[in-house]
């Protein structure tokens, strides 16, 4: 008889749900997959990306954090994710390719540091203009940032990003290489400063 695997799902936001498994699946290590293509060769994230609307997977210790698109309800997707995790664990095979774990270790570390800066220093200040910045991805030492709220489409968004956010991150983390803006500024609906043709 197969041993029961207990998984607790905790919805963190409409996009992110955390699945805590009753046993370690990547002991003391982490791997992050920001797109389906990155997961090739790693069975667990590959299986999770096969579920509709899954867009990112973070595996750390006994926790799997899954990001999905905004439009769907969590309940049916969470059940599929739980089933996929169980199936992969029961297979007895390595869940994540070793090279993905190695690649991701420094990225995960960098991600934590950047998120700390964004959450503790940057976001409280740009919130004064209704803005917010999110770390979307870390690739090597490159950061992919997304501006939202009042920053999205704002005439001063580039100044805030380059002279404020980037300068602040680089001062604290000189190992950072590129800081890339992946914001769709044209989709912003409430920019703090609207550019004009002058």
């Amino acid at each position: 008889m197969t041993e029961e695997i207990k998984i607790q799902a905790q919805i963190l936001t409409n996009e992110v749900c955390q699945f805590t498994v009753d046993r370690p699946i990547l002991p003391k290590r982490s791997a992050f997959f920001s797109q389906k293509e990155d997961a090739k060769g790693s069975p667990l994230p590959e299986a999770l990306f096969a579920i509709d609307n899954v867009v990112a997977v973070l595996i750390s210790g006994s926790v799997v954090k899954v990001t999905k698109t905004n439009d769907e309800q969590w309940m049916p997707i969470a059940k599929q994710i739980g089933a996929a995790i169980r199936k992969q664990i029961q297979s007895g095979q390595p869940l994540v390719a070793e090279e993905d774990v190695r690649r991701s270790a420094s990225e995960i570390d960098l991600r934590k540091k950047v998120e700390t800066i964004l959450n503790n220093e940057i976001n409280p200040l740009i919130a004064q203009h209704g803005g917010v910045v999110s770390l979307i991805d870390v690739r090597g030492a490159d950061l992919y940032l997304q501006l939202g709220g009042g920053c999205q489409g704002c005439g001063m968004a580039d100044v805030t990003l380059r002279q404020g956010i980037e300068a602040s991150i680089r001062r604290a983390l000189p190992e950072v290489e590129e800081v890339l803006d992946v914001t769709d500024h044209a989709a912003g609906t409430n920019p703090f400063y609207s550019p004009t043709k002058k």
Binding site: E121, I122, L125, I126, Q128, H129, G131, M156, D158, V159, T160, R162, Q163, G164, I165, A167, S168, R171, Y193
Partner: peptide, 28 residues
């Protein structure tokens, strides 16, 4: 800002409104 990077020239952006992150980069 992009031109400044390309030309290796530091830019100080002097705007008519206060940027909320000004204290992080007083030279910029």
């Amino acid at each position: 800002l992009h031109a400044g990077t390309s030309a290796s020239i530091d830019i100080t952006v002097a705007s008519d409104r206060r940027n909320t992150l000004a204290s992080f980069n007083p030279a910029g």
